[in-house]
């Protein structure tokens, strides 16, 4: 199994940390992992993206131009990465703020209304975990128990009391995802 993922959105949406939690979950499942961010100007506002690879064998290139799955959280990223999904691949997007929705017919497209749900929960910080939950429903590449272990590893101990909230958000994401 090799799963090549791009997660893309605005800086501040938790794109990089979601990728980190996913990569840590992979380690907990004894997979090989890599996490390659776009870094630099993007960190200071604007778009942010990260390539995460999970695999049962040694990972070659951490830099890719085609992906099994694209997780898209704003219009700019959709415009940029819709074309980069391999035929037969998966695209998951949050429709919030999307004017031109994805059009491809040769991939499976899912929606996750994570912005809306995070607002309803009055917890903007759960946004990326709702998205992660949606992804894990569409592509169960790591077990939920390993994601929780990954959360524990990637969050500093002082934030461990937030793990149940994050777990709920993941579960909520799993329930909310729908096919286009």
């Amino acid at each position: 199994m090799t799963e090549e993922i791009i997660i893309a959105g605005f800086g501040g949406q938790g794109v990089l940390s979601m990728g980190k939690i996913l990569a840590y979950s992979g380690i907990m499942q004894e997979q090989e992992v890599s996490w390659m961010p776009s870094y630099g100007p993007e960190m200071r506002g604007g778009t942010a993206n990260v390539t995460v690879i999970l695999s049962d064998s040694r990972i070659s290139s951490p830099i890719l131009q085609e992906f099994d799955t694209a997780i898209i959280l704003n219009q700019q990223s959709l415009d940029k990465f819709e074309v980069s999904v391999k035929p037969g691949g998966v695209l998951i997007y949050d429709p919030n703020g999307i004017i031109n929705p994805p059009k491809r017919k040769d991939i499976t497209i899912y929606q996750i209304e994570a912005t809306e749900e995070a607002a309803r929960l009055q917890s903007a910080k759960t946004f990326n975990m709702i998205v992660l939950g949606a992804y894990l429903k569409a592509k169960p590449v790591v077990k939920l128990e390993n994601v929780i272990k990954g959360l524990k590893k990637s969050l500093p101990e002082r934030h461990h009391h937030l793990i149940p909230m994050n777990e709920q958000a993941i579960t909520r994401g799993m329930e909310l995802i729908k096919k286009n």
């Binding site: 090989e32 992992v33 890599s34 996490w35 390659m36 870094y39 990972i59 951490p62 830099i63």
Partner: peptide, 10 residues
């Protein structure tokens, strides 16, 4: 280089 420096792996 910036790839190996900025990338996370196990």
């Amino acid at each position: 280089d910036g790839v190996i420096g900025q990338m996370m792996e196990k």
